[in-house]
Simulated assay, not measured.
Amino acid sequence: MSHTTDTTTGIRSEKAPTVSFTYAAFLLAGLAFLLVAPMFFYPIFLMKLLCFALFACAFNLLLGYTGLLSFGHATFFGGAAYFTAHAVKEWGWTPELGVLLGVAGAAVLGLVMGFVAIRRQGIYFAMITLALSQMFFFFCLQAEFTRGEDGIQQVPRGHLFGFIDLNVATNMYYFVLAVFVIGLAVIWRFVNSPFGMILKSIRENEARATSLGYSVAHYKLGAFVMSAALAGLAGGVKSLVFQFATLTDVTWQMSGEVILMTLLGGIGTLIGPIFGAGLVVTLQNYLATSDFPVTIITGVVFMVCVLVFRRGIIGEFYASRLGRRLGFEHRQ
């Protein structure tokens, strides 16, 4: 991929991204597989995988492209799940409006949390997001509309646009798939826009970006809100898939889980978080009925990946000789 240097700022940036034939073929093959996947796999498992893959991609937008490690992304995922579930069940909203409310609510939460957190860097930023996330967890525990420890149960899926019955598993799956593809397209466009290029420069050298006149705090806040909104999109859809929203969605363990998914797949790549989410969700699904402790097995897998694949599994593939030969080394 070629580069240019902005003569007014001095920041070396990439030109508009191009998609190689191999990369495009890879993406099309993945999409084709997802289109026929319900014929071979349990639809609920696939929908869970897609929801968490989108959640991981949203988190990667903040960590991989902006360099901000948040321990509070469960707030946006779980908060949107609560907002969507309440709107659909108690107010009788259609599923698409419920999901949009969840996205808007997550964006507002991201704006508030980000406004406070971006004032600090490094571990202090991470600890502030964790503290604010725990505050939201206790709010959800006490708030009346969340039903406390019981959560919001029996959430109706309803009819999409008034005529597509989401109670039919196939219809629900393709709705989730459409949301996933749209979310992924938004992330790709955001990352490869001029705004995204500035985020990468902030990640690489924040002091230089500041010295060149960029309002680093504003760009960080924008990335934080976008990441929160997309995490909310995943959470809102998840509440419709499983037809409930509970405290599990807003715990710190959920924030840790999405970090694990992203690191396993490879931060700073578009495909990495999807692969990481697929790996974790598959382990959870197939080990749940076995005698093996899921958390220990997942921990061992994570430890091996950290020791062997320092860039994550997909990140290491991109950097390998085969990945470079196929033209993946610059893919994000």
Rank of each mutant, 00 (worst) to 15 (best):
residue 285 N to H: 14
residue 329 E to R: 14
residue 159 H to K: 15
residue 236 G to L: 06
residue 278 G to N: 00
residue 204 E to V: 11
residue 159 H to F: 15
residue 328 F to V: 12
residue 37 A to E: 07
residue 233 L to A: 05
residue 222 G to M: 13
residue 29 A to Y: 05
residue 20 S to N: 07
residue 265 G to N: 04
residue 331 R to L: 13
residue 212 L to W: 09
residue 258 V to F: 04
residue 203 R to I: 09
residue 299 G to T: 06
residue 240 L to Y: 08
residue 315 G to Q: 08
residue 159 H to G: 06
residue 303 M to N: 08
residue 153 Q to C: 02
residue 141 L to R: 04
residue 291 D to C: 00
residue 301 V to G: 05
residue 163 F to D: 07
residue 20 S to A: 06
residue 151 G to T: 04
residue 136 F to A: 01
residue 63 L to Y: 12
residue 38 P to H: 11
residue 330 H to W: 12
residue 79 G to Y: 02
residue 192 N to K: 09
residue 332 Q to S: 14
residue 20 S to W: 03
residue 109 L to Q: 05
residue 57 C to T: 09
residue 285 N to E: 15
residue 109 L to E: 02
residue 268 G to Q: 02
residue 2 S to T: 06
residue 203 R to G: 09
residue 63 L to Q: 12
residue 327 G to P: 10
residue 175 F to Q: 14
residue 270 L to V: 09
residue 2 S to N: 08
residue 175 F to V: 14
residue 322 L to N: 12
residue 254 M to T: 11
residue 226 M to S: 09
residue 190 F to M: 07
residue 239 S to A: 14
residue 220 K to C: 08
residue 267 I to P: 06
residue 114 G to T: 02
residue 111 L to A: 13
residue 35 L to A: 12
residue 15 K to Y: 01
residue 120 R to S: 11
residue 84 T to R: 08
residue 143 A to D: 01
residue 172 M to C: 14
residue 155 V to K: 07
residue 295 T to N: 11
residue 211 S to Q: 11
residue 275 F to A: 05
residue 64 G to P: 09
residue 329 E to Y: 13
residue 323 G to F: 04
residue 113 M to P: 00
residue 55 F to D: 04
residue 228 A to N: 07
residue 237 V to F: 02
residue 86 H to P: 01
residue 172 M to Y: 10
residue 218 H to Q: 15
residue 16 A to H: 03
residue 331 R to Q: 15
residue 311 R to P: 13
residue 143 A to P: 02
residue 169 A to M: 15
residue 197 M to N: 14
residue 45 F to G: 10
residue 175 F to E: 13
residue 6 D to N: 11
residue 279 L to Y: 01
residue 325 R to M: 15
residue 314 I to M: 12
residue 142 Q to S: 06
residue 232 G to H: 07
residue 189 R to W: 15
residue 19 V to L: 12
residue 105 G to R: 08
residue 7 T to V: 09
residue 58 A to F: 05
residue 99 V to Y: 04
residue 310 R to M: 10
residue 75 T to D: 01
residue 248 T to H: 09
residue 236 G to Y: 03
residue 216 V to K: 05
residue 125 F to H: 01
residue 221 L to T: 00
residue 184 L to C: 15
residue 17 P to K: 02
residue 331 R to N: 10
residue 189 R to A: 15
residue 210 T to N: 13
residue 328 F to C: 09
residue 27 L to M: 13
residue 136 F to H: 01
residue 87 A to C: 12
residue 75 T to K: 03
residue 261 M to Q: 04
residue 298 T to H: 08
residue 151 G to W: 01
residue 41 F to L: 13
residue 56 A to R: 04
residue 191 V to P: 09
residue 27 L to F: 10
residue 214 Y to L: 05
residue 86 H to W: 15
residue 15 K to H: 04
residue 231 A to R: 05
